[in-house]
Design a protein around this nucleic acid. Structure first.
Lengths: 154, 154
DNA sequence: CCATATTAGTTGCTTGTGCAACTATTGTCA
DNA sequence: TGACAATAGTTGCACAAGCAACTAATATGG
């Protein structure tokens, strides 16, 4: 095989994983601060609430799968949310290991308060792109995720 | 103003910040494990090494700016790197607050070992995209970053 | 039906990160 | 020059996240 250049330098700022990590941190960082400061809700807590808004009566395990958040983190986040009466948690009578989770009235109203902030925030980014660009962006993300899934645990 | 739908639901899986955070974690997660397991180098340590390979004799503060890593993290990472003799750190005689950092011979050889792994890894992702898609991806990342910078600290 | 495996969820522990406070050095300006 | 501000880097501390070990409940296979 051919010899590569000895001065093979990879610029960090051009390295895709780095660029994506930067972008992701910039995006999630700012909005996480908003959730936290204005609503006292952490990022995992907010993600869990989004899932429960869409899929009421989920079990914690389903929340884990949908949010990709580690189960111990979900467990502790749910403790906080139930303690604050934003989430109602009962045990599934059909399988007493499982929990049945749903937003309380209060939880739903907090959700309704935070939601437009999240949407607005996302919109600020999407506004910089044309519709076609947005479509392409999503396609690209999809493709890259597919690659990643194709190479998990060897 | 017009009343919005009461069932205004934002699906988490379609939420851009979430999607990017997922993708970024998938990408950085796998490669970080490789750095760690095979070379005993953490992600911030690797990023610092990349910067020092490109810009020898940088000060720690310059490393912070280029890597966007918090200065205490850089400080501790540099302590480990110097302890392992991968980085040489002296104090700048012209300004004795500053440090002058560069990879040692060992550091450069470790860098040379890790670099192709990083490049290969990135290549696995880029291989899923056409050249035109890669260009567009970078443009999109750039645009989104620009938005983010346009709305820091209000 | 019993022993064992599997699953849901919780908790303990280690580690990494970020903020703030601190030290040491240099820059500024009256 | 001399008081005060600013900067480079370190360290203490608090908190979040992930892994592993654990409990409790259910599924499975002989």
């Amino acid at each position: 095989m051919a010899r590569k250049s000895l001065h093979n330098i990879l610029k960090l700022e051009n390295f895709l994983p780095y660029r994506l990590s930067l972008l992701s941190n910039l995006m999630s960082g700012a909005i996480a601060r908003t959730y936290e400061d204005k609503f006292g809700i952490s990022m995992p807590e907010w993600r869990i609430m989004m899932i429960l808004a869409e899929y009421p009566d989920s079990a914690a395990e389903a929340v884990c799968q949908r949010t990709r958040i580690e189960k111990s983190v979900v467990s502790r986040a749910l403790s906080r949310l139930t303690k604050r009466r934003l989430v109602d948690r009962k045990t599934d009578p059909a399988d007493r290991r499982r929990s049945v989770l749903r937003l309380t009235e209060t939880g739903m109203s907090v959700y309704a308060d935070v939601l437009p902030v999240a949407i607005d925030y996302e919109q600020q980014f999407l506004a910089a792109l044309s519709d076609e660009e947005i479509t392409r962006l999503n396609q690209l993300i999809e493709k890259l995720m597919a690659v990643s899934h194709g190479m998990e645990k060897p």
